[in-house]
Amino acid sequence: MTGPAILFDAVDLTLGRTVILDGVSLRVAAGTVHALVGPNGGGKSSLIRALLGQAPHRGTIRLDWPGDGPGTVAYVPQSVEFDRGLPLTVEDFLAVLCQRRPAFLGPDRRINYGAALDRVGMAGKARRRFGALSGGERQRVLLAQALIPAPDLIVLDEPMTALDEAGIAIFKTLLAELSAAGTTILWVEHDLAQVRRLATRVTGLNRRVLFDGHPMEMLSPERVFDLFSAVPRRAGAERIAS
């Protein structure tokens, strides 16, 4: 089963009196690596929260699954807030997130947590205390939990921010594997160089969609300056869209 196509149609999101998203219309094709770029506070994470059904959005967000029913959606958060002193091993952490059986009864042996950790280069660290991991290692564990069970749609919220050099290499391999398996990847990223290299399509988002297209064409200096300027030029966005 390949991944779903995602349609955002005139998605608005207002929290209090703050307009976070303003008429965002966007199509993510099935099986693509679709990058979302934009400045801080541009609504990238909010769009993802809306996609995950956790935001009071208006408009339509539709997932078109190729099969008869919905498949597996995986989510890798930007970071995880938790108590570093918690007596929780890496395996326990995965058990909390991935299995139906209560985690205090121990990890479910039918689920191969070791293989997932192996894929992110964390083999043999299943019994390490989660609070003792470095930031990069924690980010790898967050990647590993998204691989159980094998995802059809994976939503990544700035997964490379905390990763070290080796982690970045592993992430690239994973991205290639997932993409080859037909998984739809929606990827929020700050690193425009990586987006140019790895994404098949890129969308610039600053409250509204400023551009949407192939990374090589879209990530020109002029557009990037426009995207990251304090006041996004609506007229310019419309010119580009047409």
Partner: peptide
Amino acid sequence: MHHQIVRRAGA
């Protein structure tokens, strides 16, 4: 093809 509409969060 299965169309899944993401419902808004709310009570």
